[in-house]
Simulated assay, not measured.
Amino acid sequence: MDVFQIYTYSTSAWLALQSVPLIAMPSMIVALLLDETRPATTIEVYFARSLGIGLLTIAIMTAMLTGSIPLTSAVKEPITAEESDPKAPYAKPTLIITFFFHAVSAFYTYTRYVTGGHGVFAMAVGGNSLLASIALWCVLFATSEGKISRRTGADKRTAGFPFSNSEAAKKHAGKKL
């Protein structure tokens, strides 16, 4: 399993973990958030369950749009390397959107932790920051296809500025084509 699939499953699991208490126990969540003890109103229960259903929907859509869950049951033989790539066509946009979601959530929970000092916000900062950093790594390194030269075996996108790779030039200078 590659880093991209680990990120996809981790994001889906993190969002599902956050949605379960909101759907199953909205009155308890509202009671935990209040300073005084009172029963939750119907609008508070409605918003808590709606948020939970929304988070669960985003979790499922993340797994489906990135290609981690196949949408078709047909199995066909891949012809080229590009076709054997398990990522769906919406994988990169979904990755970028979930990266921004985790980054903004990490920033928000960090500000809540600094102002309130509750340990739950510290755990949320850790989870969101970890997922945002993995997403950033995937955006930077896991989404581009390398341009490998058939003649030299080197990556064509690299430049010699400001330092040239003289060892690679020496190694490939003696080969005949």
Rank of each mutant, 00 (worst) to 15 (best):
D2T: 14
D2N: 15
Y7S: 10
A13E: 01
A13D: 09
L15D: 01
Q18D: 04
Q18H: 08
S19Q: 08
V20T: 13
L22H: 09
I23A: 08
I23H: 08
M25V: 10
I29K: 11
A31P: 05
D35Y: 08
T37Y: 01
P39Y: 15
A40H: 13
T42A: 14
E44Y: 04
Y46T: 15
F47G: 02
L55K: 04
L55M: 12
I60W: 11
M61E: 12
T62Y: 01
L65N: 05
T66V: 12
I69W: 14
L71V: 02
L71F: 08
S73T: 14
S73H: 10
A74P: 00
I79S: 04
A81R: 04
A81S: 02
E82V: 06
E82D: 06
D85A: 07
D85C: 09
D85Q: 03
P86N: 04
A88R: 05
P89R: 09
Y90K: 03
K92H: 12
T94M: 14
T94K: 04
T98K: 07
F100A: 02
F101E: 01
F101Y: 13
H102T: 04
T109R: 00
R112E: 12
V114E: 00
V114P: 05
G117L: 11
H118G: 15
H118P: 03
H118W: 03
A122P: 03
M123N: 12
A124H: 06
N128I: 04
S129L: 14
S129A: 14
A132R: 02
S133W: 05
A135W: 04
L136V: 04
V139A: 11
F141H: 11
G146L: 15
K147L: 08
S149C: 15
R150S: 06
R150K: 14
R151D: 10
R151F: 01
T152V: 07
T152R: 02
R157F: 07
R157S: 15
A159N: 07
G160L: 10
F161W: 10
S166G: 02
K170L: 12
K170I: 09
